[in-house]
Nucleic acid binder design. Structure first.
Lengths: 344, 344
DNA sequence: TTGAAAGCGCTAACAG
DNA sequence: CTGTTAGCGCTTTCAA
């Protein structure tokens, strides 16, 4: 059933049906009603392929993220989806696994599909190249991570602030040898969280010990390896800030294996809250990000750009929150130097 | 840059370019090379909208699931995506939140988009109506849950087997008042897991106490409420099988609140393994599902149907595994297997 | 305000 | 084996 079937049945032209459907132009009230009734009656659904071909743009947003298994990103995507659906866009999820080549391929697909917009969390600040997309006039919003090679709208969290709060909190708890496990250097989130950590140490005249800053891969295995190395070094930390929730999984596994007692032997602050953060013992202190709202904000920006709204590049920043629980709070004021019993 | 630009530059017809691009028909080796070189040089990308319009079908699969926040489904989707991408399909994720109306809307969209196939985990065995899709000849694969109103290909897990293994294990551990928290009655997974639980009890002449079977909503809050009710009843269970990982989160929260000691006071088996299952204390005994492989299997079926392969309705069944850890093992009783044993 | 007609980019039927 | 041609369903000039 095509637009012509509707036109014939309603005794108008296809052009008129199109106008009614799109709310463009003015159509006599009577015809509007007739067309709408006919559409309803015939169960007519516009053919999106034909529409996209004619309009030269598909009612689709591509969302390019690096890790679909990270609950932060799924919450983010839900925020984007909710806004997108409210405005008639389909949302296509593209998962890159932090792989620059996959990311490039998805950007090519976005180009071929003539999508109405792209929301991307770049796999790399320097290497992710948005210029082709920009050149084609595709509206783009960066989310979570900043790209450096193109000026585009963005929605970010104040990572430095969150990391600073986390680290300051560890300092207040009496930790003096505070380590940091951050993500790949090529991402802005890893860099900014590291910077916040360093700023907090600087402020009180502390400095990281050699080897106490570790760059891992934002994945559990990376966190696991980094934690093992740290804990088995000559000068193990008594405080640890882990800048990503996936890596935190690995860190906790390592602590369990090595019998490191938290928080007495190692005060711990993670990143991103999880439903199970209160189910482990000790309950986890984390920096919580407003993931869903981040997604909604990105969607809002993209809606405006898709509608052709011009104007300078905009950047929205949301604030993270430190949620203090047990993993960072010393039960006694004295830092424990002695050996510990098995982890509990 | 269109197919005609390529044709002109390569000094052939657009039809020949199309043939080379699609690998259909035979084209002289020389022309193939010339066309491919030109495509490369011009950076030509086929317009998918035009292709979809012409072919009357988009190279897209819709995946309709009920809970994107459940890691089981994200793993499942990754399996589907991997297969889909290998065969040139985009995968669009549609999240219904167990809402039949949303589900119906997504099915309408799938129809309007003329997608090449749909993979669905029906929100309801009875009410989810696939007949419109079937009537239009859209290839469909049901995954995880069975629909009753249409005969379509499907990939499922043997839920009864997994639930039976879980329950039998609880019985072996000496539990005699074993309760079950399952999902909405309208889903086949909830029904089958309940049936497996009952079969295991029957076999040894046990029966659930009144109120010891609870239907919740596959969400944390539902698990929380159900667990509170059970634990505060006159005859609290000494064993509990929770048929979904989201609900397990709520159950664990309730146990923590009420000070229920696991496994001594309550032996516990959950459903679906998680990265944090070994990080909580006690470590969780669960029935583990091959989520990623389930997705791949569904993708494989859909590839064949998309290619027009006829034949009878097929159903693939994969087996779950009981992973025995601490939450179910009475400290006074020896576990019957190793740290992990296969169900059945 | 409405209709007629052209054309978006591609593929497939049909000639040659 | 290759080219010509028509048309997928829709929107949008341009005329009336």
């Amino acid at each position: 059933v095509t637009i012509y079937d509707v036109a014939v049945a309603a005794d108008v032209s296809a052009a008129t049906v199109s106008r009614v459907l799109n709310g463009t132009d003015t159509v006599a009230r009577e015809l509007v009603e007739r067309v709408e009734a006919t559409v309803e009656q015939l169960g007519y659904r516009p053919n999106h392929a034909a529409r996209s071909l004619r309009r030269q743009v598909a009612a689709v947003w591509d969302v390019i993220i690096s890790d679909i298994e990270n609950p932060f990103f799924t919450a983010l995507v839900r925020g984007i989806e909710d806004v997108g659906h409210e405005h008639g866009f389909s949302v296509v999820l593209c998962n890159t696994d932090e792989d620059l080549q996959k990311e490039r391929r998805y950007m090519d697909v976005a180009l071929a599909e003539r999508v109405a917009g792209v929301i991307i969390s770049p796999a790399s600040e320097q290497e992710t190249d948005l210029t082709k997309l920009v050149a084609q006039g595709v509206p783009i919003v960066a989310v979570d991570r900043r790209p450096s090679r193109a000026q585009v709208d963005g929605v970010m969290v104040d990572n430095a602030l969150g990391a600073d709060a986390a680290t300051s909190h560890l300092i207040e708890q009496g930790a003096t040898r505070i380590a940091c496990i951050t993500g790949p250097q090529r991402t802005t989130t890893a860099a900014e969280r590291l910077a916040g950590y360093q700023a907090a140490l600087d402020r009180v005249g502390l400095a990281p010990l050699p080897g106490h800053i570790r760059y891992a891969d934002f994945k559990p295995e990376g966190g696991y390896q980094a934690a093992r190395t740290l804990l088995q070094s000559a000068e193990p930390p008594d405080g640890l800030f882990v800048a990503n929730s996936q890596m935190l999984l690995g860190v906790l596994a390592a602590c369990r294996e090595l019998g490191t007692s938290i928080p007495d032997e190692l005060a711990l602050v993670g990143w991103d809250d999880s439903p199970w953060a209160t189910l482990v013992s000790p309950q986890l202190t984390v920096v919580s990000q407003p993931a869903y709202d981040l997604g909604r904000a990105a969607g809002d920006l993209l809606v405006q750009r898709s509608a052709g709204q011009p104007g300078p590049v905009r950047r929205v920043t949301l604030l993270p929150t430190l949620v203090v629980r047990e993993s960072s709070v010393r039960r006694s004021v004295q830092p424990s130097g002695g050996p510990s019993a098995t982890a509990g």
